[in-house]
């Protein structure tokens, strides 16, 4: 009996090893990103107000923690159904009015995906560069968006095949730091230390002979920016 048990155990063990080992090498390594949970347009403070009101009126039994979780959503649905509102679990302007509150950020709230994408690309491509060099990389991406020869969106430009090495090798999925965010923000606000450049390269690693023929505008840190 013992023998069989031992064989069975080793069998499981071997299987476990071979699978986890393979899985680790096979899975693409996407960093967990602080994905935003969207539930409408309410802030933490507003969620607290919603929870407090719903709790007082007996719609909500959970904690007042400012987190718009499933319990809060259910409570909002319950409130909506009792008050003749369309039941979607989201506090829009009408539900807010019925709750006797006005939302600070109205329906126009929009998450800054462009900023996030831009910051990711800046961090992946130029995290070792001086601040201005990071702004310049972001500016090049935005100049490409404006330029007829490139795609017309930030995501289109960043994910264009072979356009950025950091996208090809997956570094694009690293989480950007606050400097990269600031640089991306500045570029979105119109800063462009390169005055319209659409290319840059590192002269010590650039392999394409074609890139050397472009008109150089400025060198910032390790990158040469050109038209």
């Amino acid at each position: 009996m013992k023998k069989r048990f031992f064989v069975l155990l080793s069998l499981i063990f071997v299987f476990a090893i071979s699978f986890t080992g393979l899985n680790m090498t096979m899975k693409p390594n996407f960093n967990s990103q602080n994905a935003e949970i969207t539930h409408g347009a309410t802030t933490t403070a507003e969620n607290r107000t919603i929870q407090t009101k719903l709790k007082r009126w007996g719609y909500y039994k959970g904690q007042v923690d400012g987190i718009y979780g499933s319990q809060t959503r259910e409570a909002v649905r319950y409130f909506q159904s009792k008050n003749g509102l369309s039941v979607d679990g989201i506090v829009g302007p009408k539900t807010a009015a019925a709750l006797g509150m006005t939302l600070s950020s109205s329906t126009s709230f929009q998450s800054s995906n462009d900023l996030y994408l831009l910051a990711k690309c800046v961090y992946a491509e130029a995290r070792g560069e001086p601040y201005t060099g990071q702004v310049a990389v972001a500016a090049v991406i935005l100049n490409r968006v404006e330029n007829a020869s490139f795609p017309n969106t930030i995501s289109g430009v960043i994910y264009q095949k072979g356009a950025f090495t950091a996208v090809t090798d997956g570094q694009i999925n690293l989480s950007p730091n606050s400097t990269a965010y600031k640089a991306a923000q500045d570029a979105l606000n119109g800063w462009d230390p390169t005055y319209g450049c659409i290319y840059y390269y590192n002269p010590s690693t650039a392999t394409s002979s074609w890139i050397w023929s472009r008109q150089v505008v400025v060198t910032i840190g390790n990158h040469v920016f050109c038209l």
Partner: peptide, 23 residues
């Protein structure tokens, strides 16, 4: 036991590779 282990791990690896390959 050693033979069984070897056989099992070979099969395991094989199956693993097949699975990852199909993945």
């Amino acid at each position: 036991i050693a033979t069984a282990l070897l056989a099992v791990s070979t099969i395991g690896l094989g199956v693993g590779f097949a699975v990852s390959d199909s993945q």
